[in-house]
């Protein structure tokens, strides 16, 4: 599949792949779907790395050849593995990635409701006892008042 440039080490950039507007749209969609393998959470479409540029060129070449979105996706997965696709397929073990966030939110909501109910069912805490007139301080106060009278 790969053919390097016509002259070894030629510094001229490779010619751009010209596409129709519909093909441009498809290429953009595929580039947004693919992860730039050497970047942090960036798609081939948004990254400006050389690697992403090379991948973008390959996407455009394949689109120009009439390859489908699935065929192009399979081409990259066959070389980099499943992780090259930003959104994993909705099949098999990959379903976990789609369902786990919902399961976690649901589990969190159930836990919050359960804890709230438990708190609601508890008796209110007992009020602190009223100050006793027999406390040492009160006894002293009363004694001193009596003495002044």
């Amino acid at each position: 599949m790969g053919t390097a440039a016509p002259a070894a080490g030629a510094d001229e950039p490779p010619p751009p792949v010209v596409l129709t507007p519909a093909q441009e749209k498809l290429a953009a969609e595929i580039e947004s779907m693919l992860k730039c393998p050497v970047c942090r959470s960036q798609s081939v479409r948004t990254s400006r790395s050389f690697m992403a540029e090379d991948m973008s060129r390959r996407v455009r070449q394949m689109v120009a050849e009439g390859k489908s979105k699935e065929e192009i996706r399979d081409y990259f997965v066959a070389r980099y593995g499943d992780y090259i696709v930003l959104a994993p397929r909705k099949e098999g073990f990959a379903w976990t990635v789609w369902l786990l966030p919902f399961a976690l939110v649901l589990g969190g909501a159930v836990t919050i409701v359960a804890v709230a109910r438990r708190w609601k069912g508890r008796p209110p805490p007992a009020a602190p006892p009223p100050p006793s007139s027999t406390s040492t301080w009160m006894q002293r106060l009363e004694r001193e008042l009596e003495e002044t009278e």
Binding site: G2, T3, A4, A5, A8, P37, M51, R79
Partner: peptide
């Protein structure tokens, strides 16, 4: 045998990272 992958096509074909 030493040559250059000027358009990066061989690198992509082999799933290169670096």
């Amino acid at each position: 045998h030493l040559g250059s992958d000027v358009d990066g096509s061989v690198a992509v074909d082999y799933g290169l990272y670096g």
